[in-house]
């Protein structure tokens, strides 16, 4: 660490302190103590009220009920990103298995990955299935789930995953099943005489006496499956060995 770096860091921190002191004494700091009217509406109507989503978690009820179409198209954007990544990395020929020498990491890494993948699956399922009760939801749970194949790819190899049947194509099929289920859930209220993405009178708010908040729990479940499988496909694509690509592109050697 050079002397100049220390001086620059000190000057920077002093500048930040000075500016915030100046704002405190001279101008007004934007401090809010109230909720804006739109936020107040959501707070009042998330569990009680006529327009309720029957969910104690206000953010999820905004995401999948009040602003449901936004979230739907956001899922579409994510799907398009993965599709374009597939198009960028496409390999037409069936790729050969590259055999590398060496034994990989020590058994410490491998056995820990075995233990930790079980725990991560449990945690991700808890995040996704309680999206309508506590902070969390389908996207967050799916991202947590996708850590498992990533860890397995790093610790063992890509072929350990593909040998057990989880190839890129299977992941994309699972992802498509999740997305198609979401589309069907969107269209069900139309058949029942409601409007698009309607939640409450169409779907039951309690199943077996347990709060499920209408369609929110189903949306979270299918989003969980779709996002987990989509990220798995991305990681499988990223872990294709460089040699295969060099053979196909025919560009720079090594």
């Amino acid at each position: 660490m050079k002397r100049g770096h220390i001086i620059a860091l000190g000057v920077f921190i002093a500048l930040i302190l000075l500016v915030s002191l100046g704002i405190t004494f001279v101008g007004k700091v934007p401090m809010t103590t109230d909720v804006r009217p739109l936020g107040l509406f959501y707070l009042k109507n998330s569990y009680f009220g006529n327009y309720a989503a029957r969910s104690p978690e206000v953010v999820t009820s905004i995401l999948w009920d009040y602003r449901g179409l936004d979230t739907l198209f956001e899922t579409g954007v994510f799907f398009l990103a993965i599709i374009s990544a597939l198009a960028l990395f496409r390999i037409e020929k069936k790729e050969e298995k590259v055999k590398e020498k060496g034994e990989g990491f020590t058994f410490i890494v491998k056995d820990t990955v075995r233990i930790i993948s079980v725990l991560i699956v449990a945690v991700s399922a808890a995040i996704a299935l309680h999206g309508h009760l506590t902070p969390g939801g389908g996207f967050q749970g799916g991202s947590a789930l996708a850590v498992v194949p990533l860890l397995i790819i790093v610790a063992f190899s890509k072929y350990a995953l593909e040998g057990r049947g989880l190839t890129k194509d299977t992941a994309m099929i699972v992802r498509s099943i999740g997305l198609i289920s979401i589309i069907i859930l969107v269209l069900i209220p139309l058949a029942a005489g409601g409007y698009l993405m309607q939640n409450l009178p169409v779907f039951p708010s309690h199943i077996l006496g347990q709060l499920t908040s209408g369609s929110l729990v189903f949306y979270n479940l299918f989003e969980y499956i779709a996002v987990g499988a989509g990220f798995t496909a991305v990681f499988l694509l990223l872990s294709i060995p460089e040699k295969v690509f060099h053979k196909i592109i025919g560009g720079e050697k090594e």
């Binding site: 079980v118 699956v121 945690v123």
Partner: peptide, 28 residues
Amino acid sequence: LVFIIYILFTGSATLYDIITGVIVSVAC
């Protein structure tokens, strides 16, 4: 183990948590 982790992470033990927890733990 998975069931204990699931219930601890959820922080509550209603019927919904127990049913989903049993499903997830058996699958795992």
